[in-house]
């Protein structure tokens, strides 16, 4: 007898978990391949960058966002529109520097780390470091050079996950990505 429909697993939830698990398998592969956590962080950032430079086009096409007037607006769009669209979460924008060139994204929950516990020997590993790369790549495509890094991570026992984004300079006459 063949089974009838009415399966209870929610396909969207499965997609989400598939993504989380696939990302996990990537990180564990990287941990196996590289000797130090630093190298893994770097590799994740690089892969994120590659994703970011392409993701931003998808984002602009679908969200219809216009040119930002200032960096504060950029921050809001990343948090409320970008993260919402791709990961379904809305991090909080906080901790603006006095000069207005640096802000934090604070995450209450992070779908990438849903099933993750960080072993003690990997205390230097920024598990979600791919996000830094994605933001950096995406902003570079819209001609902003930024520095993105994790300063706190729930996985490491901090109270929250915090990402710092620092504006460095505006890129003029940028060469399109991949055509150096």
């Amino acid at each position: 007898m063949s089974r009838q429909g009415g399966r209870s697993a929610d396909p969207r939830k499965v997609s989400q978990e598939l993504f989380t698990l696939t990302y996990g398998s990537l990180v564990s592969q990287l941990v196996k391949d590289y000797e130090s956590d630093e190298e893994v962080n770097k590799q994740l950032d690089k892969m994120g960058y590659n994703i970011g430079i392409r993701l931003v086009e998808d984002f602009l096409a679908r969200s219809g966002e216009r040119r930002c007037n200032d960096f504060r607006e950029t921050a809001d769009i990343i948090a409320k529109s970008g993260f919402k669209m791709f990961l379904g979460i809305t991090p909080t924008v906080a901790n603006w520097s006095a000069a207005g060139d640096e802000f934090s994204l604070i995450f209450d929950n992070n779908p990438l780390t849903d099933f993750v516990e960080l072993p003690e020997e990997h205390s230097q590993l920024n598990y979600s470091n791919i996000l830094c790369g994605v933001i950096r790549g995406a902003l570079e495509t819209v001609q902003m050079d930024v520095n993105v890094r994790f300063v706190q991570d729930l996985l490491k026992g901090d109270n929250q996950t915090e990402l710092k984004v620092k504006f460095i300079k505006r890129l003029e006459d940028a060469v399109p990505a991949g055509e150096e």
Partner: peptide, 12 residues
Amino acid sequence: MADDVLFEFLHM
């Protein structure tokens, strides 16, 4: 919910 595009990029 993670977007499908993201998964495709990740796979690539």
